[in-house]
Simulated scan of single mutants.
Amino acid sequence: QPYVYRLTITDGPWVEQTYPLGIQRGTKTEVQLLGQQLPVKPVTVDVPADAIGTIGHSLSVPMGETNVFALAVSDHPNVLEADGNNTPATAQAVTLPVVLNGRIESVGDTDHFVFQAKKDESLVMDLQAARLGSLLDARVSVLDAAGKRIGGGDESKGSSDPKFTFKAPGDGKFTVVISEQEPGRGGQRFAYRLEIAPSAKAKPGFQLKLPGDAISVARNGEAKIKINVERTGGFNEEIALAVENLPAGVTVSGGDKIPKAKNVVEMKLKATKDATVTVKSVRITGKAKAGDVEITSRAILAAATIHDTVRNTMKVAVAVPVPFKFTGVF
């Protein structure tokens, strides 16, 4: 069962990568599409304000509808690298927090960005490249005003993408440098996305987790699903759940809330004997209060591979019970 594959062969529009690899949440941004049968000029992508993590997106282009491709989203302003930022002396000035978007466009290329930090300020530096399908095997270095390397990384747990915390040794300007680790590598597909932001204590909240991407329920039958929750920042309160867009004839019982201090609840989907045989994208949303603040979270399914995206719906299919027989004139 784990050795299942899906092979798509097409001469239509197909997006293999974008530049930049992502954009700021709730904004419209011009993006260059890399692949086949795609516009040469950048296209405008509109990302909703409630987008989560890495989203799946498709576009209508003159040659047809593209495949669903991955786009990273973040809260912080996005900056594209400027030409000529190849040395510490010509480093591009940026203001934190920020997401730096660039490419190692040729062999030996390096990108430099300079920022201000205060003594003992802790900054989380998280570079995304391989996780978003880029060919870049990145190294990140932090230099002081004299050009000495005082921090950096070249990988993180479970990924070749660097992620580390930099603590400023004093007030001043610091330069972050992005480069390719392996010799003889560079090009259009060597893009990166480096987020730099102060370390932050997690706010009270929660994230609902879907059990999978799809489930089927037979007519006059039932199916059970479990919704898990990840609590953050000491949040421990009850969470009210709502299920939207169920197929006609399907109802849900139980699991209308996750009790205080609990992390999982079971829902039961039940279909009537004449429920419409169809598939619907179902949303599960949780609401709760942390003090006077109302918190809302849409249940998600995390991306399984670098080619996958975060999903915030689950397909619910109504099926005909087996064994069955169709009769008619064909």
Results as ranks from 00 to 15, higher is better:
Y3M: 15
Y5P: 12
D11M: 10
G12A: 10
E16P: 01
G22Q: 09
G26F: 08
T29N: 13
E30Q: 15
V31N: 12
L34T: 11
Q37H: 13
L38W: 10
A51Y: 06
T54Y: 08
I55N: 10
I55G: 09
G56N: 06
L59R: 05
V61S: 05
V61N: 03
M63G: 06
F69Q: 03
A70E: 07
A72I: 02
P77G: 08
A82V: 14
T87M: 09
Q92G: 07
Q92E: 13
A93Y: 04
L96S: 06
P97D: 05
L100E: 05
R103M: 12
G108H: 03
K119M: 02
K119C: 00
E121C: 01
L127D: 00
R131N: 14
V140D: 01
D144L: 05
D144T: 06
G147E: 08
K148R: 14
E155H: 14
S156D: 08
S159K: 09
F164L: 05
F164H: 05
A168L: 02
G172D: 02
I178T: 11
I178A: 10
P183W: 05
R189Y: 12
A191R: 08
R193Y: 02
I196Y: 02
S199E: 14
P204R: 02
G205L: 01
G205N: 02
Q207P: 00
N220C: 03
E222Q: 15
A223C: 02
A223Y: 02
K224P: 01
K226H: 04
R231P: 00
A240V: 11
V243Y: 09
L246N: 06
V252L: 07
N263F: 03
V264A: 15
A271D: 09
K273F: 07
A275G: 07
T276I: 14
T278F: 03
V279L: 00
V279C: 00
S281H: 10
R283L: 10
I284A: 03
A288M: 06
V293I: 11
A303G: 06
T305C: 06
T313R: 02
M314K: 01
A319G: 04
K325L: 15
T327K: 15
V329A: 15
